[in-house]
């Protein structure tokens, strides 16, 4: 099938700083990864040349299968450094093919790991990219209905915004690190469109508190908190696969209730710290500076953080 060797990636390597290939190599059991349509096949964008932009031999998405701590999984990873990890005609179709394969064949692994690292849709291929997101979201839901656990891992440089933010929230479960960021419109986009009073994208602490992994985990926008390492994400992913909610009416009714309750509880909050206080955290200012272990302890006491409404 392929012969893409894996360099050894240490367990303590930073997820944020690693490339998509390094993340896969480090996450999966050594030597277990088999790539579909590897770079030697040159499955790349035919559209970037129009814009005088370089292509990548994998169009920034790697798909394949392997083993996660001994368990067979399908896996896909976006390369956030290439075109912001964006959904485009080819990169999107690679994700789509993988998820549909799991949906249609119960002989394939019943878990898919999506290593999202994406600013959303690739504007140079905007229509194809947007539609690819819609197709991927639909395929994820259909796969879930067929009994596949689809786990999103968010901790890369590009985060998971726009269509990638929606894709993450369509999955059975989401793991996120402190550096992981997710949402729909990025802070820069909001500032550009609505002004700096609405969202000051240069205010790092503000951006962190609104879109960052700790806020998402506390309010239940992510289901596991991972240390920013390869082994951190391996543990988080492994723990989530067996806790995937079924995709049915009861689950979506629970999600409706959960999201409605969130609006009501935080209606008067204008900052994330105010939300955290409402959640019962007595010293919300300390969230930013505490270490991962201390944060995980805090999360364990927050009722809203863990749920099956997804």
């Amino acid at each position: 099938m392929n012969d893409m060797p894996e360099a050894r990636v240490s367990d303590s390597a930073s997820w944020f700083l690693s490339t998509a290939r390094e993340r896969i190599a480090g996450l999966l059991d050594h030597g277990s990864f088999m790539e579909f349509l590897p770079p030697t096949e040159r499955v790349q964008s035919p559209h970037l040349a129009l814009f005088d932009l370089p292509v990548a031999f994998d169009d920034g998405v790697i798909v394949g299968r392997g083993r996660l701590a001994g368990r067979d999984v399908l896996i896909a990873a976006q390369e956030g450094q290439f075109m912001g990890g964006t959904f485009a005609e080819v990169s999107g179709a690679k994700l789509l093919g993988l998820i549909r394969a799991a949906r249609d064949n119960d002989k394939l692994p019943r878990a898919i790991l999506l290593l999202l690292d994406s600013g959303g849709v690739r504007l140079q291929e905007a229509n194809a990219g947007e539609l690819a997101v819609a197709e991927v979201m639909r395929a994820i839901m259909e796969a879930r209905m067929a009994g596949v656990a689809v786990i999103a891992l968010v901790g890369g440089r590009a985060g998971a915004f726009g269509g990638a933010g929606l894709t993450a929230a369509t999955c059975s479960r989401i793991a996120i690190s402190e550096q992981g960021r997710t949402g729909v419109s990025g802070p820069e986009v909001i500032e550009t469109n609505k002004g700096v009073e609405e969202f000051d994208s240069k205010d790092k602490a503000l951006v962190w508190s609104v879109t960052g992994g700790r806020n998402r985990r506390l309010i239940g926008g992510a289901d596991a908190y991972a240390e920013d390492t390869v082994s951190g994400f391996r543990e988080a992913a492994s723990s989530l696969i067996d806790r995937a909610p079924t995709f049915d009416l009861a689950t979506l009714q629970a999600e409706q209730q959960r999201l409605s309750a969130r609006v009501e509880r935080f209606a008067n909050c204008s900052t994330a710290a105010e939300m955290w206080r409402v959640l019962g955290i007595t010293a919300p200012q300390s969230i930013r500076d505490m270490n991962d272990a201390a944060f995980v302890k805090i999360v364990a006491d927050v009722k809203e953080a863990s749920h099956d409404g997804r």
Binding site: D3, A56, F57
Partner: peptide, 17 residues
């Protein structure tokens, strides 16, 4: 080894197959 890819296509970087 039959093939390998190193690097990524990003500003100031490159991929080599």
């Amino acid at each position: 080894r039959q093939s390998v890819l190193v690097g990524v296509v990003a500003s100031g970087n490159l991929e080599v197959l």
